[in-house]
Design a binder for these strands. Sequence first.
DNA 1: GCGTGATTACTCGGATACAAGATGTCCGAGTTTGAGCGG
DNA 2: CCGCTCAAACTCGGACATCTTGTATCCGAGTAATCACGC
Lengths: 133, 133
Amino acid sequence: MKFSKATNYALHTMLFLAVSPQNKLIGVQQLAERQQVSTTYLSKILTKLVKAGMIESTSGASGGYRLKRNWEEVSFLDVIHAIEGTASLFECGMNHGPECLIQQVMLSAEQKMEEHLRNQKLSDLAKQMPVVQ
Amino acid sequence: MKFSKATNYALHTMLFLAVSPQNKLIGVQQLAERQQVSTTYLSKILTKLVKAGMIESTSGASGGYRLKRNWEEVSFLDVIHAIEGTASLFECGMNHGPECLIQQVMLSAEQKMEEHLRNQKLSDLAKQMPVVQ
DNA sequence: GCGTGATTACTCGGATACAAGATGTCCGAGTTTGAGCGG
DNA sequence: CCGCTCAAACTCGGACATCTTGTATCCGAGTAATCACGC
């Protein structure tokens, strides 16, 4: 039970794009170097973020990635769900009645965490950081 | 990022012991049958609970497991930590300054969940359930 | 009846097998930019 | 100067290879209760 490295890469990439000059395309090379990860692997992660509608990509020479219009509303939970999926963290696969009390406790605990992550926008963090050229 | 099945088994076993007649030893066979899991695997999980001081075991014929004295104070978090370990769910392994803002957000989110799990005792659930013979 | 040993019913621990998911690589295909070149 | 071609610099996607971890099994060892047997 741990968050995957991919989630870490995704969050850091989003934050890096947030403190970069807007509308400027940034290649996956630059993003990968900064995080010590291969470009091919990172591009796979970014593809998920594109499909989730958080960033957009441009092909061809001088192509790259940049945030989409509504990026200021993107929360930590959005990024995590895009990478890890939205399935529940705990599933009591047993057949002992329809309502498992344990399941309910675990579910509400998970929702506590999600609520906190939903309230944390990337833009909140970006404000606290210096803009990178 | 999911809770392991082992955690599920551990929680259900603890709850089952909680609604069983106290001080009565229950064999791993009975526990395993109820959860559709092999006895050998379940016994490995229970060993962790023994080492964590939540239950105690007795060897030999008519041996088995039972809760320890202080079981009414055992929380969900205690069980989870005994099985999954106490490591943080998120670790930013990057070298970009001592204080990673992302790490801080993730950590506080995790603590929100843990706080909820710490307040949920197994004895709370046991009270809501009929005693099983 | 009573000790003694064998049998049985258990837990315990290590070693190992198996499966699934996370992580990472390779390569071919498509796309855009820009340079080079001929008219 | 203009338009064409071609190479370079990218992203994209599928198919792998690898590594880690969770899940599960097997087997031998230890332990305690119970039974059998001989005295």
